[in-house]
Amino acid sequence: MSEPDDPFGFAPDENAPIPYRERIRDYYQGLGYGAPYRWAHYADVPFAPMRKKLSESRIALITTAAPHKAEAGDQGPGAPYNGAAKFFDVFSGDTSVDHDLGISHIAYDRVHTSAADSNCWFPLPQLRRLAAAGVIGEVAPRFHGTPTNRSHRVTLAKDCPELLRRVREDKADAVVLLAV
């Protein structure tokens, strides 16, 4: 709780980042589901340094947002959590044109944000502006969309290699991934 008279000027404890693992575990157990989801976790993390300057690099975007599906019902701003809007295969799109991508298939914070501005999860227009301004070399010819799959096996065996294949095909030098 907020304590405005804190003598040290400390922020309230709840100012710390939300502990989502605990929050989500307690939530689904509270709803009556069984064994908690096991999040992926690694001791080691790979690292590939940039080989070129950012201003000379071709940058690709990968997002978990979904293309609009005519048959899947409400996918617009504030739409309820929409299972029919989910997708199950990596897809790609031409970055020289605009795209209608939504996040109604994701459990984003529907109380405090309404998904009204796709720039918040698919910053292709900004990336194009930064290319025009010379901050990056260029935008890769395609962006890629990846499913938010609960199965680690499917993600690791199918989606990750497919993303790598496409990013290589496009000769991207580095990748920005949007985790919604």
Binding site: I18, P19, A40, V45, A48, L156, D159, A179
Partner: peptide
């Protein structure tokens, strides 16, 4: 998404993840 970043990176492609769930990533 984090798994994809790791896979690309392990294969020589630098990545950055943008996200709002600090503990999960």
């Amino acid at each position: 998404m984090s798994l994809a970043a790791r896979h690309l990176e392990a294969n020589g492609i630098p990545t950055v993840v943008m996200g709002c769930a600090k503990d999960l990533v």
